[in-house]
Design a binder for these strands. Structure first.
Lengths: 198, 198
DNA sequence: GTTCTAGACCGACAGTCGGTCTGTTACGAG
DNA sequence: CTCGTAACAGACCGACTGTCGGTCTAGAAC
């Protein structure tokens, strides 16, 4: 073993930082989460943090990656075993709407990420995770919906943006003036029925 | 006139600050735009700025309001004189996609606003401007599209999120790996055709 | 015309934050 | 045992946001 105890401990510190950062970022948002607070809550020193991450954005990006990996995994779990492409797409979208209701996902993935990393970089990361799954599922369902191959990419983006918006509507609805979870799921169904008729 | 020259000058200072802030915010984004820079570029003193705005967020919000007012006005200009509700909706969406291609709109309205003001407050402001128009247009077009009244609100959000996403896709496309303006406008047409069949 | 008021404006200052830099420690290779 | 290096420590720096006491001047009051 070239490295072992040392690398292990380093990895542990890194993961601990990401875990603490993810929690604080979800609670307070990027701007109101200070590096100082992350250091204090994690008990890690300033030097250690900057040894693992070049800056605050990088720490945010690591947290984002962790959240994305988690929700992508949970989304595929919700669709596995479904043979029909359209049904699988529907199940995936519903699972996504439910997941995006969690504050961690909402704040980090949907609200802060575009502003912190830029829209371009944000979509690059999503493409490697949940959005990649969605695009593949839509590709598989394209024939059934009479969707031209050239439109699959744009419609994948449209569908992603739509379910994200619906998830945020549900989150707002917790206060009363919004949309209930049932209404949202009905809306997702209606949306897919209209986007992919047939 | 109870107040005149004094209030006039105050208003001018305020508007000047908003104008300078809008430009800088569009160029650098919220995080990289310092109050210091706004002060320097505008020639206004620190005290004057904080006399007009309680903080950086408030200055951002004022800039956002100004941009929203502008694009709402330009969007209605693109739809006036169109009698058919669906055609008016289509024209409005196409106008919006074109407007959202401008860096000022993209950066301030679409990328930074949700993170700075929070998603909820963001949509409140949009509801008073461009989004309000869209919802009204969709309401008018609901019958033609066989849309249930209960779904109009959610679908208005879906449509807004979709055209925003398409606009951002076009902006990315300027680099080459994205979507051309023609493809985007075709996609908007196709989207509306599927959302409102009939 | 003098006085008074209040809103517009000023700029020094405090506190915080992100990031840097110079060490120090200890694991593991040779 | 020695040495190199990854992991860590924490003092420090420049920049930034927001505050606070004070100044100036247009117009009201008389």
């Amino acid at each position: 073993m070239l490295v072992n105890k040392r690398a292990e401990r380093g990895q542990a510190t890194r993961e601990h930082l990401v875990a603490v950062a993810t929690r604080l970022l979800a609670e307070r948002g990027y701007e109101d989460t200070s590096i100082e607070a992350v250091l204090q809550e994690s008990g890690v020193s300033r030097g250690a943090l900057y040894h693992h991450f070049p800056g605050k954005d990088a720490l945010f990006e690591a947290a984002l990656e962790a959240v994305e990996r988690d929700i992508a995994e949970r989304t595929v779990a919700a669709t596995e075993g479904i043979a029909d492409p359209v049904a699988a797409l529907r199940a995936g979208c519903l699972a996504w709407v439910r997941l995006a209701g969690e504050p961690v996902v909402r704040r980090i993935v949907l609200v802060d990420a575009p502003a912190v990393l830029g829209w371009h970089r944000w979509r690059e990361i999503e493409e490697r995770h949940a959005f990649g799954l969605l695009k593949a599922a839509l590709q598989a369902a394209a024939d059934a919906g009479g969707l031209q191959p050239g439109h699959v990419d744009v419609f994948a983006h449209v569908l992603l943006a739509s379910v994200n918006e619906i998830a945020l509507l549900v989150a707002r609805g917790a206060g009363g003036d919004g949309v209930s979870a049932e209404e949202a799921e009905a809306a997702v169904g209606e949306l897919l029925r209209r986007l992919l008729p047939g």
